[in-house]
Design a protein around this nucleic acid. Structure first.
Length: 480
DNA sequence: TTACTAGGCAAATCTGCCTAGTAAATCTCGATTG
């Protein structure tokens, strides 16, 4: 049967989206694949279809519990029952059950942390997997070194046994991220597919303001004059709270979103935003992964993103429907200092390294440091990982190098902000690509007609109102 | 590095200024605690 026929049979689609066919063919030829596809372009189909063709279980390593849940539900909507999320949501009994019948599932979603548990590995060794997928593989690079070291351990696990082909999926594709993925996962001469990173329908604004207060008044004005849906990214939970309250007082349907909220609240806010019940989300970088909302019209950064990869991911959430969208980065002098502080603030210090070694030599568990409050949980996890890998001096050098890399990444971002040339060209160039064509309203330096965009927004708002009869009808039927 | 907050103090009975202390993002798992 042709691939198209299989696609139609299993998912009801008549044709592939760009990249899907190439990726699937490579997998079927038992090649390792690194596929860099924008979110919302059907990344998951790249493993879903092969799962049916290969007729063997597929293991998907996913960074977020919520992402796993979403994907499990999506597959269930397609009528697939043999799908499971193996994570800490399961009770001990459930986990035991799932592990016992593991080979009977077609799709097994799990976290890196769970994957590294001995009992899980033992069981997986007995299952003949058809494909291993590392979803959102940029997390290896973004989180592995200084946040979730288990991302780096995935590679060790993979190299230990005879594995099936591996598919690394991501939407972030800087050369450094790609290199980290290749190395950590030991991809064997991978087939690589990379989409065009440019998103011509997103206008790239950059506005330099005096200070924080200036930003606040600019934002209030802007948000009142233009329509959402939009995401405002801020640098702290507290500020997310403050802005969302201010917007609410101005009569704008807004919610704050950050990791300080529980899973249920976050799910609820996210759903409200997706359903069009909120105009703005004011969020920390916790918001975004796995969000598939087509009509986000604006993404504004109130403070500097830590690096270009994050920036691209965050603005890339706008305009998935192909309609015009606006990304605005607000900057005031010295913003980079705070960004640098925040991204390196959690790294263990050389003193922590010495202390760790001291405790080891005294035959005291290093976790004592954590109990004494000598350093935070993240810092300890990172320190503990590296101290098991390398000598004291190597770890010190590594941590120093990590901090320098992070500073450098902030500086690269700053260059984008400060450039007097085309911002789009600069951004695309950072990903090793060449800009094909400059769109209208390209970027701040090429010229953006903000007034026209504002008008467009207002018309868009009316359109939304017209559609809402559907919603009203639904409410009537539901008796709300 | 920055910027907000609490607390102390002067001078006046509420307010303002200064200083020291503190906090600033991302996740999962599992052990411990109230």
């Amino acid at each position: 049967m042709e691939l198209e026929e299989l696609l139609h049979k299993h998912f009801g689609y008549s044709s592939f989206r760009p990249g899907q066919r190439e990726v699937i063919e490579a997998i079927l030829q038992e090649k390792d694949v690194m596929a860099l596809l924008p979110t919302g372009m059907g990344k998951s189909l790249c493993y879903q279809l092969p799962a049916y063709i290969l007729d063997k279980p597929v293991l998907i390593v996913s960074p977020l519990l919520s992402l796993m849940q979403d994907q499990v539900e999506e597959l269930k909507r397609f009528g697939e029952k043999r799908v499971v999320a193996l994570n800490s949501f399961l009770s001990l009994t459930e986990k035991r059950y799932v592990l016992h019948y593991l080979e009977q599932y077609r799709f097994i979603f799990t976290s890196p942390e769970m994957l590294l548990q001995q009992q899980v590995q033992d069981k997986l060794a007995q299952v003949k997997l058809g494909l291993i997928v590392v979803d959102e593989a940029h997390c290896i690079s973004q989180w592995g070194y200084d946040f979730r070291p288990d991302y780096l351990r995935i590679g060790e696990w993979l190299s230990r046994h005879n594995r099936p082909p591996l598919l690394a999926l991501s939407a972030t594709a800087t050369s450094k991220v790609m290199q980290d993925i290749r190395e950590t996962l030991s991809l064997k001469e991978p087939f690589e597919f990379m989409y065009n990173v440019d998103r011509p329908n997103i206008h790239l604004g950059r506005i330099v303001l005096e200070d924080k207060a200036d930003k606040a008044s600019w934002l209030m004005r802007h948000v009142k004059e233009t329509a959402g849906p939009g995401i405002l990214y801020v640098s702290s939970r507290k500020r997310a709270q403050q802005y969302s309250e201010a917007f609410l007082q101005a009569g704008i349907r807004t919610a704050a979103y950050h990791a300080g909220y529980g899973a249920e609240d976050r799910q609820f806010i996210q759903q409200q935003f997706i359903d069009g019940e909120l105009d703005w989300i004011v969020a920390t970088n916790a918001f975004g992964m796995g969000i598939n909302k087509q009509d986000i019209r604006q993404v504004i950064h109130e403070s500097m993103p830590a690096n270009i990869a994050n920036y691209m991911q965050e603005i890339g959430r706008a305009g998935r429907d192909g309609e015009s969208a606006l990304a605005i980065l607000l900057y005031s002098d010295g913003d980079e200092e705070l960004a640098k502080f925040v991204v390196t603030g959690d790294l263990p210090s050389p003193q922590h390294v010495d202390r760790y070694e001291e405790l080891i030599s005294q035959q005291v568990l290093p976790a004592q440091m954590l109990k004494n409050g000598e350093l935070g949980e993240t810092a300890f996890r990172v320190l503990d990982y590296w101290m098991q890998q390398e000598t004291k001096e190597q770890v010190k050098a590594r941590l120093n190098h990590l901090a320098l890399e992070k500073y450098h990444a902030v500086d690269e971002m700053l260059k984008i902000i400060q450039t007097k040339d085309c911002i789009r060209e600069h951004l695309v160039g950072y990903f090793g690509q060449k800009l094909q064509k400059k769109p209208e309203n390209c970027c701040e330096n090429c010229g953006i007609h903000y007034d026209e965009i504002k008008k467009e927004r207002l018309t868009a708002e009316k359109k939304i109102e017209m559609i809402s009869w559907e919603r009203r009808l639904q409410q009537l039927l539901m008796g709300k």
